[in-house]
Simulated scan of single mutants.
Amino acid sequence: MKGKERNGIRTLLELVRIIFIFFIIGGILGYFLEFVYVEMGIDTENYGWLVFFAIFLLIFVLYRNKLQFSGWYKGVGRKKLPKIVSQILLVSAVFLLILPAILSVLVK
């Protein structure tokens, strides 16, 4: 294969890998969190979208800081997020995970 064809295939494989990572890790984490929230009596129907965004942020930080370096794509632009950005995103994700509990108590 030529260099450009090989890079195109590697990029496609990495995109498929990213999709699987988000679906598998996101699905497992979402299922676990829904179970925890239901056991705590938190309304998952109205606040599930907050948990979705929190999981998305967590997986995004995980991918950018760790998983992208073990994939098929070897091109340019592969670097970790700046530390402050990672911290802001992680704190935001934790806040979004706690917010459904706070909102369900306030609404009741």
Rank of each mutant, 00 (worst) to 15 (best):
Q68K: 00
L67Q: 05
F23T: 15
L15F: 12
T11Y: 13
I42S: 06
I18V: 14
I25P: 05
A54R: 00
I24G: 04
V38K: 14
L29R: 00
T11P: 04
L62V: 02
L33S: 08
F60L: 07
L50H: 07
Y63I: 06
F23V: 15
Y37F: 15
L13A: 15
F60R: 03
N46E: 13
F35N: 14
F53H: 02
E39A: 11
I42N: 08
F56W: 10
R10H: 08
R17Y: 08
V16T: 07
G26T: 09
I55A: 08
G41T: 08
V36T: 12
Y31Q: 12
F53M: 10
A54V: 05
R64Q: 14
Y63M: 02
F23E: 14
I28T: 11
E39I: 06
L33P: 00
I25V: 15
M40Q: 13
L15H: 12
L15Q: 13
V16W: 00
E34A: 11
L50G: 04
R10E: 13
E39C: 09
I21P: 05
V36C: 09
I18G: 10
L62W: 01
F22W: 09
T44I: 15
R64H: 08
F56Y: 11
L62S: 09
W49C: 01
E14C: 02
E14W: 03
I42F: 09
Y31E: 14
F52G: 07
L67Y: 05
N65L: 04
E14Q: 15
L12M: 11
E39V: 04
E45F: 10
G48E: 01
F53A: 09
G48W: 03
I42E: 03
R10W: 07
R64F: 02
L67T: 03
K66D: 11
Y31T: 15
T11L: 13
L62M: 09
G41D: 05
Q68E: 10
G48L: 00
L13G: 06
I55E: 04
F23K: 11
L29H: 00
I28A: 13
V51H: 03
I21H: 15
M40H: 04
